[in-house]
């Protein structure tokens, strides 16, 4: 994931870090691309970890880098996971300083560890400078950030997201929900996106 994210940052100047807006910071790729891929994900869900580490780089390679699609990350912390909401708040706070992808990468990489110990902050802090840590820690308690995460959850509920991860692909008025994307069903997702691109 990391190399693709870095490549994208280098390729597309309109990305997260340069924009400073949470919505844009959670976007991968060019927002002018024809297809929008919304990802509803939970940092503590094992399927989301697998998706983030194995399938997301493939989607980025196939669709984001060529400019066919862009990805928007939505937080969808499930209540069954005790530390998901905290992780989502911290990642969203990190998005405001352009560190969303780095935080997401480290959270998924160490999911088992902080998922067991509850040391979410220690994991997040490991990819931030001391100055960034201060900012993110403060922002993670900011009502605007908490509202942003809640807004993501409500967006997922409005989409009737049945599980995490779920992808919603759209182009214009066409909008389709694709729950549980994985390597096994990727040909179907690819066919769906290709259909939208025609």
């Amino acid at each position: 994931m990391k190399p693709y994210a870095v490549a994208l940052v280098a390729l597309l100047p309109c990305l997260a870090a340069s924009l400073g807006d949470v919505d844009k910071a959670k976007t991968l790729g060019n927002p002018g691309a024809p297809v929008r891929i919304e990802l509803f994900s939970d940092f503590q869900c094992p399927g989301c970890k697998a998706f983030h580490e194995m399938l997301l780089p493939v989607i980025i390679r196939d669709y984001v880098v060529p400019g066919k699609a862009y990805i928007f990350n939505h937080e969808f912390p499930l209540t069954m996971h005790p530390y998901s909401r905290e992780a989502a708040n911290l990642a969203t706070a990190a998005a405001t300083i352009g560190k969303y992808q780095q935080v997401a990468d480290v959270l998924f990489l160490n999911q088992v560890s902080w998922g067991t110990s509850g040391k979410v902050w220690d994991t997040v802090a490991s990819v931030l400078t001391p100055a960034e840590q201060k900012k993110v820690q403060a922002l993670a308690k900011d009502p605007a950030i908490l509202a942003q995460v809640q807004q993501d959850v409500e967006a997922g509920q409005a989409q009737r997201v049945p599980q995490t991860p779920t992808i919603v692909v759209s182009r214009g008025t066409k909008r389709y929900s694709f729950p549980g994307p994985d390597q096994g069903n990727y040909p179907l997702l690819r066919s769906l996106i290709d259909g939208l691109l025609k």
């Binding site: 389709y176 694709f178 729950p179 549980g180 179907l188 769906l192």
Partner: peptide, 9 residues
């Protein structure tokens, strides 16, 4: 009414 891929999923 939907793309066949969704039912295939």
């Amino acid at each position: 009414r939907d793309p066949w891929e969704l039912y295939a999923l």
